[in-house]
Every structure is written in C-alpha cells, then in structure tokens.
Design a protein around this nucleic acid. Structure first.
Length: 223
DNA sequence: ACATTAAGTGATT
DNA sequence: AATCACTTAATGT
C-alpha cells in the first residue's frame, strides 16, 4: 500500500527541487512533463546508484548533494572519474540508453543526495520536442567530457603530489568544506595507487603547509 | 586490557 | 612510484 501522505511529500519535494535547480532552463511544458513522469529519490551517503553492467532505466537530475562516478577493473581496483553536482546529469547515461547499452561506470552517492529520475524513453523523446532539454543534455555532455579530460591530464602529466592535491581540492569543492573526513586508504583507492604512496605525499603537503591532517581527517589550509 | 584499524618508515625494486 | 615488512598511534569493545 502506498502511503498517500508520504507520496504527497515526495511530490512537493519534486516540484520544489525541479523549480529551484532547473526552472530557469526548461520550458514550462517540459517542467510539467517532468512533474508527471519524474520520480523523486533520496540517496544516503555511499549508496550505489548504478554499477557496471547494469541496464540504465532512468536519467538522473541532481537536486542536492553529489555523486561520484568511477571506473573499476576485474580485480576491483577503482579510479574516480569525476563528480556530479546539483544541476548536473550524467550525460553518459544518455549515450548508453540511445544504444540501449549497459553502464560502463559505477555511480555512488558522495553525500546524502536528492535526485529526480526521468525514465529514459522520455529523456530520448524530449531531445526532439524541447530545445531546452536538448541544450541541457548537450551542455552536460560537454562539461563531463571536459572533466574527463582533466582527469586524463592529471593522470598523464601530473606527479603524485599534484594529483593528490587536486583530488583534495575537488573533494572539498563538492562537499563545500575544506575539512574532509577521509582515510589515506580510501584516497589511494580513488586514485588507484597504494596507501603508502598517499601517506608520504600527504606528509609532504603537510610540511609545505597546504594541509593539516589527523587520523581520518584532512583539512585544506588554502584552496 | 585487548583487538582492530589507520598511519608512519626504511629498505628494495 | 610501488611493494614489502614492520612499527607506532588512535580507536572501538
């Protein structure tokens, strides 16, 4: 049985979240359609939204929070690709759905996150019917591509210390706080390297006054 | 008090 | 920059 009260609350959240974050870009008709077919969803931190090999059924619109998008191999070694923040969507989702392919990535909630889920069949049709939607999807594609290039650049051209520092800055950015609750091990995981390497690099960053750190806690002193 | 987990270090490749 | 082997420090029960 669906609880009508709970449903009602979700409906209000959906409308509010939609208006605040997307009201400016989308046509009124489109907003109405989204209200009709979109589903509101709350994710708690570290909840897995999508995993490799999963069929993509929904197109996500971030309303609050952040999502990290990562790649991993057979041995479970991971690499962080980029974050999605409020007002973003995962453009990869669309390219996947169009070819009805399975997901190439894993998406995990970085914090508690609210999103609106659009069934893919609508997302595809709207490309033709709403210029605002098309613009939004293409822009997002562009942003994600740029972030991916940034990640590739950091892998190819930056040394470990620069990479770790960038990682910390990005993380502070999406979490809106220079204080990060994180272990050396989990950084190593995200950056696909060994914990000892991270520990040593962090020590250097600390010596040069860029961060301060204690167990499970790193603070960026300038960013 | 003891076990577990996080972080630091020297030596080697 | 990665790996090994080990130590030390912080924390949970």
């Amino acid at each position: 049985m669906v609880n009508p009260l709970k449903n009602n609350v979700a409906a209000i959240d959906l409308e509010k979240g939609l208006q605040e974050n997307y009201g400016a870009f989308f046509e009124t008709e489109l907003l109405k359609e989204i209200l009709k077919v979109g589903k509101y969803k709350r994710l708690s931190a570290e909840e897995v939204i999508l995993d490799v090999g999963q069929e993509i059924q929904y197109f996500p619109l971030l309303v609050s929070g952040a999502v990290r998008v990562m790649r991993y191999d057979e041995e479970g070694d991971e690499l962080l690709l980029y974050y999605l923040e409020t007002g973003d969507t995962c453009a990869l989702s669309l390219s996947c759905c169009l070819g009805s392919k399975k997901s190439e990535i894993k998406a995990v909630a970085e914090q508690n996150t609210d999103l609106i889920l659009i069934p893919v069949e609508y997302a595809e049709i709207w490309l033709d019917t709403y210029p605002g939607w098309r613009r939004f999807v293409l822009d997002n594609y562009h942003y994600r591509m740029n972030e991916l290039l940034e990640t590739v650049d950091s892998l190819a051209f930056m040394n470990m210390e620069e990479r770790v520092y960038k990682y910390l800055k990005d993380k502070a950015m999406v979490n809106h706080s220079p204080q990060l609750s994180i272990t050396h091990q989990s950084i190593a995981y995200d950056m696909h390297t060994a914990r000892v390497v991270i520990s040593r690099v962090l020590k250097n960053l600390e010596k040069s006054g860029k961060i301060s750190s204690t167990r499970n806690q790193i603070e960026l002193l300038q960013w």
